[in-house]
Nucleic acid binder design. Structure first.
Length: 530
DNA sequence: TCCGGGTTGGAGCC
DNA sequence: GGCTCCAACCCGGA
């Protein structure tokens, strides 16, 4: 049996390749997970508690495509439906079909580790051999950590220093797979339509411009790599987050997330392009650098207990984030009154994808920039709605953007007004995703509350009625956030609670008293005074 | 203990 | 578009 979970592809699929070499009959299985798919009527948008309909749609398209590709090779996808736990369904099929060898791609996410452990325990007890190759990432996270003296690398550079060159992908193409075995009494489902999954009326839901599946992934990759100069000059931080008709990146992330595209194959193809150009950019900003970032976050997340939480997470700054359901919901639903922020959140809701820097803008705004709301709240929204949502990368970037880990320059705050304006002064991106602002003149489109009433009337958009007033004043809110971050950092300093050391840092209360003192401005380094 | 480096800030200047 | 300054963070290596 080949058990598909991620890795929804035929190319560079070591689990599938090992299975076809090792058996006369192969059962390619995918189990629909009710924990992932069960409709949640209380969710803020159609879908399950874990996934919005855009990502469910992408998954179903990917399964459909995988099934067609397997059928072309004389096989097919055997789709099972778990009643509750996926591992139970796999174990039942292993037993009922009398399987001798089980192959699946290794998955390092906590949910997957628990699920897979149940299956491997059952297999061991039943005398079933298990093969679980690493092929979702360039490297094996466990191996990287071991090479680093059993310490998890916590900076990109230290990760690069030990990573080296990734293994080559499997490139052998084959025209036939062993046929499927006897499935006995099992009812074989075809891939369901989204409409059949019980998400209610989804006819009004926007269909994202990205279609799931390996076929689409390979096509998209080839199109991206065709422009060799673009590939060679790619610098991630220089991309335009407001570009939506033709995004500034490859938008291969959803395909990498589901494994429709092999990261090793993609890396290999980029290297091919580099060989044909005189010069090319390098990590961290280059295209290969992006794949290495992905592996970096997979490695750190694997080596860090409670990576997806602030509490109990050793690498995460403990910050007293503020509770505000009202502000949180305004952010989540694209009603902050800052058009740049709201347009991005609406793009997320509709497309399940936004440019990386757009994600930065809204993540900074929610956390350390303006609202001072917990990054875990934002993480949950992204995790549910993004079609490329990936546990390691999503959590890693929320830690980054909230200045909780990896990145600490909390005084660098994205302006919800000027950051978008420098890429898109006319506000076309905003006009596209927020129709209410379509006729707002460009000089007011990023700050519509400053438009005179006559202008608002002419644009048929009254602020406070047709489009919300800003929920906070950015200048004041960001100043307050900076102060709060400074206090939180002071409390996090290891020497903060140790009275023995002479150079102890001031805790937040002491610091406040110190800074309120009349002549505090004379010393630039209060923490050094003893 | 010091110093250089850190994928992606903003504002003002040329 | 690129430079500098702003105010100042943490980490890793020496």
């Amino acid at each position: 049996m080949v058990w598909f979970r991620k890795g929804l592809r035929v190319h560079d699929n070591p689990a599938l390749d090992l299975a076809r070499r090792g058996a006369a009959r192969v059962y390619p299985v995918f189990v629909l997970d009710p924990r992932y798919l069960r409709p949640d009527p209380d969710a803020p948008s159609p879908g399950s508690a874990r996934a919005g309909v855009a990502r469910v749609r992408f998954l179903l398209e990917s399964l459909d495509d995988l099934d067609s590709r397997l059928r072309r090779l004389g096989s097919r996808l055997l789709l099972l439906r778990a009643r509750d736990d996926v591992s139970d369904a796999v174990c039942a099929a292993l037993k009922d079909w009398n399987i001798g060898k089980l192959y699946f791609e290794s998955d390092t996410e906590p949910y997957a580790l628990t699920r897979d452990m149940r299956v491997t325990d059952f297999a061991a007890a039943s005398g079933i051999e298990v093969f679980s190759p690493v092929s979702h990432t360039l490297f094996d996270p466990a191996e990287i950590i071991e090479k680093n003296g059993c310490r998890t690398p916590l900076t990109y550079q230290s990760f690069l220093n030990i990573a080296g060159e990734p293994p080559a992908p499997l490139t052998e193409e084959y025209s036939v797979l062993p046929p499927i075995g006897d499935t006995g009494e099992y009812e074989l489902f075809s891939v369901p339509k989204l409409e059949e999954l019980g998400y209610g009326d989804i006819s009004q839901e926007h269909v994202p411009p990205f279609r799931g599946g390996e076929t689409e992934a390979l096509k998209r990759m080839r199109e991206s790599l065709q422009d060799k100069e673009w590939v060679a000059k790619f610098e991630k931080p220089k991309g335009d987050p407001s570009a939506f008709l033709k995004p500034a990146t490859t938008v291969l992330s959803p395909y990498l997330k589901f494994g429709c595209l092999s990261s090793r194959y993609f890396y290999h193809c980029i290297q091919d392009v580099y060989r044909s150009t005189k010069t090319h950019t390098k990590p961290p900003v280059s295209l290969t650098g992006q794949l290495l970032w992905r592996d970096f976050f997979y490695t750190v997340s694997f080596g860090t207990p409670n990576f997806d939480h602030m509490k109990g997470n050793k690498i995460c700054k403990q910050i007293p984030w503020r509770e505000s359901e009202e502000l949180f919901v305004a952010w989540r639903d694209g009603r902050t009154g800052y058009p740049w922020i709201d347009a991005i959140m609406i793009q997320l809701r509709k497309w399940g994808w936004m440019h990386h820097l757009a994600r930065h803008s809204v993540a900074c705004f929610l956390t350390r920039g303006d609202l001072f709301i917990h990054w875990e709240k934002g993480r949950d929204v992204f995790e549910r709605l993004l079609i490329d949502s990936d546990w390691a990368i999503n959590n890693g970037n929320w830690l980054w953007l909230s200045c909780s880990s990896f990145f600490y320059q909390y005084h660098r705050i994205y302006s919800p007004i000027s950051f978008g304006k420098k890429y898109d002064p006319n506000g076309d991106y905003i006009r596209h995703f927020i129709p209410a602002l379509k006729h707002m003149p460009k000089q007011y489109i990023y700050e519509p509350w400053t438009a005179p009433l006559s202008v608002q009337e002419k644009a048929r958009c009254i602020i406070g009625k047709d489009y919300p007033k800003p929920v906070v004043d950015h200048a004041a809110a960001s100043k307050e956030c900076r102060d709060r971050m400074g206090e939180a950092y002071a409390s996090n300093r290891p020497s903060g609670g140790d009275p023995v050391k002479g150079n102890k840092a001031l805790n937040s209360r002491q610091r406040k008293i110190y800074e309120d003192a009349p002549d505090s401005s004379k010393s630039k380094h209060p923490k050094k005074s003893s």
